[in-house]
Nucleic acid binder design. Structure first.
Lengths: 344, 344
DNA sequence: CGCCAGACTGCAAACGTTTTCATCGTTGCA
DNA sequence: TGCAACGATGAAAACGTTTGCAGTCTGGCG
């Protein structure tokens, strides 16, 4: 029952060997005589010794720790990302230090600094705008390896889906269901490049399909729907028949507010989201959405970071997305829908 | 553009003072002559110096880091707990190291060990069974301060709601709505003492109210509903009219499976959950549930841990729960409901 | 003038490891 | 027999801080 955990040297004294030998018993066991190794290991266990990573990190210069910097865990997408990254890190013998930013670029910087102060060896992070991020500049200047998650960038390694294409696919689905007048609903665009890319994808694909230009409504927060803005959108001269929300949390909030405004989904209006969180599939009606593989985004980002640390450099990855048709999108009855446009 | 970040001594050399003085410039600025302090701080900034916490931790014996050990972040309850704890820790100048256990007591132990190896100064954790947990024993033996979150225990400090009472209150609500034959649905009881306490609460309160003894069905996982078990429950001689699920995720899954079995909620069957995750309020119909203040559980647990570290000892706290009536629970029409039993 | 307090700073020893280099037997082989 | 090579271990110097102690200098006061 050791009051303060024993150190290497205490074990060394007990066993009657040098500290170096004890260290080797844990790190390079094959170097030791079987007998000594056993002797060391047993007394170590008896005294409840575990090597102090602080000392080890200081001397070796490696903390075996990765930093993870995400907007919020309230969005299950990021929670899954963490779990993916954590699992992969664990396999590689790394630990993970998590910090959240609340979509705030100020906190983004201070949190990143804090992680660096702890001497994490690299970072996985999601930033507001990777093309103009003080945090990323700082990381680059300090030669800290990092991999972006969810962000897309042509200057930095990232792991994400192809947000443009994914949003486009959803537009295609909506069009196939007979919708022509679309609206995109998002949070503040400057706090999420994902939302921007998705909006681009929506506009682009709509144009390509010959639909009238979708309108865009920006909500004050990423996950809450403002009733007034919603009302004014729907009372415009040519109101949309389908609302594409930039994430599932927002989509759910929108559906809720629509109910309050007297609109029923999907009878009066179709709604879809993005992320395909597990929850959406259980909603009644189920939420139409585009699935992005968050756990894999986390684990792959971790994988890329690890190989960067291993000196192999890291690629950027666009993982496949998948369209989830759902009950919240209805086919407009008065439109003939070409069979090839149907989704399962 | 420093290739490897400079150290205290480099700054000291640059400025022409001793390392001790540089250290003081950051930790005890009031001890220094204003001029020297300024000189140090500016060159430190110029060279991009930030004190290395590894060295600092080693020497001072304090890492200013807390460990957080939770079952899974896939449950928003725990995600919120993290955010609460993180925020409080940040205020106190602490960082947080998070690890998840997946409800697995094996991983529970190894993850706790890993956190201790990092020399976290204390732990906030949720275990399967606090009354028989090898992990807790180990923590106690090593004199590591810790606070349980969500668990209740008479041997260890904890922060939670009163699960028994909370579950009881929901039973009361159901009874007030005219339900008499209840069923409790949970995951494996041995992996969650919360579920056990809630079941106790249900049985106890039902007995007290003179209801027939509720049946209990255990699902293989905490968040997934097994269709077969559900079917057999509902085809029993006296099927329940209301299902109390031990958490909201499970409740949602149950509602989904019920739909597949042809039951509509709440017309054919009432369903309620526990946790009152934000999401449930947005469901249509909204999910009846018992709210537990997860963010506060996290921040208060952190608070208690901090005061334990400060030597003040830590209390156990039962935070107030709150009943959320919701659309998934219907009043049985053929029952007169006493007005005093109504909930807002 | 002498002395002391106080303000400021430096010296050097830790903290718990890892790792290079050296040491010392032993063994294999010519 | 001599020598190289090898296996097993130790000595000691780092890694970047913090901190008790001691030192220097200044000014104030008797």
């Amino acid at each position: 029952m050791p009051l303060s955990r024993p150190s290497l040297v205490q074990i060394a004294e007990q066993v009657g060997v040098s500290p170096a030998t004890v260290s080797r018993a844990f790190n390079r066991p094959e170097l030791l005589n079987d007998a000594t190794r056993e002797r060391i290991l047993t007394t170590a266990k008896r005294l409840g010794f575990r090597p102090n990573r602080v000392g080890s990190s200081l001397r070796s210069g490696s903390t075996k720790t990765l930093g993870l910097l995400l907007p919020t865990l309230a969005n299950p997408v990021f929670a899954a990302c963490f779990e993916g990254a954590e699992a992969r890190a664990l396999e590689a013998g790394y630990s993970v230090m998590l910090a959240t930013t609340g979509y705030d670029s100020q906190r983004e910087r201070t949190a990143a600094r804090s992680l660096l102060d702890h001497r994490v060896e690299g970072l996985i992070l999601t930033v507001s705008d990777p093309s103009a991020s003080a945090t990323l500049d700082e990381l680059t200047a300090n030669d800290v390896p990092f991999v972006l998650a969810y962000n897309e960038s042509d200057r930095h390694p990232f792991v994400s889906v192809d947000n443009r294409a994914a949003a486009g696919d959803m537009v295609e689905h909506l069009a196939a269901c007979g919708h022509r007048q679309l609206a995109m609903i998002s949070g503040p665009l400057d706090a999420s490049d994902r939302a921007s890319k998705r909006l681009d994808g929506v506009l682009d694909r709509a144009a390509r399909l010959g639909l009238p230009a979708p309108t865009h409504v920006s909500m004050p927060r990423h996950t809450a729907a403002d009733r007034a803005r919603l009302r004014s959108l729907l009372s415009s001269p040519r109101p949309p028949t389908a609302l594409f929300c930039s994430n599932d949390l927002l989509a759910t909030a929108v559906i809720f507010e629509l109910a309050a405004l007297g609109f029923r989904v999907p009878r009066d209006l179709s709604v879809c989201g993005f992320d395909a969180m597990a929850f959406g599939a259980l909603m009644v009606p189920s939420l139409a959405s585009v699935h992005q593989p968050s756990t894999e985004i986390g684990s792959q980002a971790c994988q890329e970071l690890l190989s960067a640390l291993g000196g192999e450099g890291s690629r950027s990855l666009r993982l496949p997305h998948r369209l989830f048709g759902g009950g919240t999108v209805a086919s407009l009855p008065h439109h003939a829908v070409h069979p090839s446009h149907r989704y399962p």
